[in-house]
Design a protein around this nucleic acid. Sequence first.
DNA 1: AAGAGGCCCTGATAGC
DNA 2: TGCTATCAGGGCCTCT
Length: 287
Amino acid sequence: MPELPEVEIIRQSLNKKIIQKTIKKVIVRNRNLRIKVPLNFEKILENQIILDVDRFSKYLILFLSRRNKLLIHLGMSGTIHLLKYNKKNFLTNTSFYNSPKLPDKHNHIEIFFDKFKLVYNDPRRFGFFEIIKDQYSLEKRFEKLGPEPFNPIFDISYIHDNLRNKKKNIKNLLLDQNFVSGIGNIYASEILYLSKINPVKEGKSINKVECKKILKNTKLVLLNAIKRGGSSIRDFKDITGNKGSFQKNFKVYQKEGLKCKREDCNGIILKKNISNRSTFFCNLCQK
DNA sequence: AAGAGGCCCTGATAGC
DNA sequence: TGCTATCAGGGCCTCT
């Protein structure tokens, strides 16, 4: 479901609520996530204090008091929300979150704190919760992933060097997490539109000027999306129930058939399947 | 070795 | 109404 901006929004809202809180109890209702939740998962987490909530790419990282970490990935349909306990010690969702569209049957993991619980809901179960034993293992875990777009390593030379021998199209390259981490299907289309680059263009035919545009627009799009609370299509919300609004800023994503937003362009937004993912682009100004 | 395609899942929606 | 097909903010594995 979420790309880097949405995960960052979740991190921020989670950070405010669970830092320095102790995990009282953990219930796993379905271990069959993308990675099987191990049988000792609950025991490892219980009685630990959350020291920090960090993020790399589309992964959330909870730093725990015994120095291990909880790595969370939301896949395509994972959501996290906090439910407050009411006076009778029953659980109510009125204070923090309400979403009539999330049936309880997909609440796979619940982490209980003193006054609220964290609930992980994921209909498609492409997400996962993974215990990482220490800092070294964490770095090892991310070893093969490319830098985030905000990392100074991700500069024009890095982009150019990584594209120049690639036959793969630029859209798929932007989605390749081993090249750059955090871009997903929505933002790839948006970045290429702003850069006036056709999504099917081969990596090796992208020149330095275009690399510069990709660099600039990648950061621009992701930062603006974060600024606006992420993109709320299919009901994305942060853990306190606030919707993002970046979907209102989409130039091409899900804009098939509409006129190009550039005033000096008479193009039409087309939808094309690239490696089985929808891709949106202007037929005229993206060369 | 790079790159294309299949696959992991459920739910919503469209079309007959 | 009820079927079938298609499509979803992701990423890993296998085959060529």
